[in-house]
């Protein structure tokens, strides 16, 4: 059972990948599909490991990420 959860606004995301390196448990990756602007977007590929630390959201330049925690 995950302690945290991230929700990424895929249409707002520009696929810069800064969040991916900021995640201490490496749950984020770039999607294989693209959004309306043509960017591959960040998504949680291992959501069950999320701790809800919000590091990804802190470094996201576009404010795309919302974080929940138990």
């Amino acid at each position: 059972m995950a302690k945290g959860r991230v929700e990424i606004d895929r249409e707002r995301c520009k696929g810069c990948e800064v969040c991916i390196g900021a995640c201490p448990v490496s749950i984020l990756a770039l999607s294989s599909s693209v959004n309306g602007k043509g960017y591959a977007y960040a998504e949680a590929v291992l959501p069950e490991k999320c701790t809800g630390c919000a590091n990804c959201a802190l470094v996201c330049p576009d404010g795309c990420i919302e974080v929940w925690r138990d």
Binding site: P61, D62, W68
Partner: peptide, 17 residues
Amino acid sequence: MEKVYSKPRLLTDAVMH
């Protein structure tokens, strides 16, 4: 679960250029 981070209230919905 409790929301611990979201886009700041004063940041508009405009997508930054």
